[in-house]
Amino acid sequence: MFFGRWTSTRASGGGLRPPEMKLFALANTSIGKKWIVAITGLAFVGFVIAHLLGNLQIFWPNHGGPEHLNAYAEHLHDWAPLLWIARVLLIVFFVGHVYFTILLYRENRAARPQKYARPAKISASVPVMTMIVSGLILLTFVPFHLAHFTWKILRPEYRDFVDEAKRPDVYRMVVVGFSSWPISIFYIVSMGLLCMHISHGFSSVFQTFGIRNKLIAPVLDKGSYVLGWGLFLGNSLIPLSVLLGWVTWPAK
């Protein structure tokens, strides 16, 4: 189907004969799909790290938060083509990640039509077993987050926030945005799910790429765990600091 038929004839003395090759049909195979999910997932891990590092500038010491964050945000828009390339890539990766995960998930469900009457927990931990759930919830978080801070559909008034340098006042938007308890808690919970998702997903990438053996497996698993927690703490620190009054607008 994907690679064409493997012809095997006795005349050749056995052995595997070359297939009719279709390179892009790789996406139809189990391992091909895993690679796509891994590559796109890894790209998102990179994005999430960069995103966090940028946002952490809100904590710039000596009341430098507003200046640095707003300057950084402005800087991102310096060169429109690059921004659009990044955006298109992110969209493609996002769609790819979600699409192929759902494909895999559906195949996996179909592979066991009859469930066990008494299932047991074998070696799988919570993050592993809830990848699809955490993924789906994150799927609702992403548009919310975009609508909230990027497109400002939910809060059109953010569009009027401008700082002294006439730049969009991202700092004020963040502080105002996270001043709401329900919204902040939603963000923190989502970050918790992201943490779980990445703590399994990141180490899985290495398994899928084949860079994993018994020796480095514990390192990968722990590293992935640390990365997930780090992202959770870093990302949660922002709404939490606003709620606890550590970060205010105007900055004090």
């Binding site: 189990s30 799909k33 895993k34 195949e107 179909a110 592979a111 799988a124 592993v128 077993m129």
Partner: peptide, 13 residues
């Protein structure tokens, strides 16, 4: 794949 087995999701059961 053709036999209808599922895909590995790195659970290690």
């Amino acid at each position: 794949d053709a036999e209808g087995f599922g895909n590995c999701s790195n659970v290690y059961n």
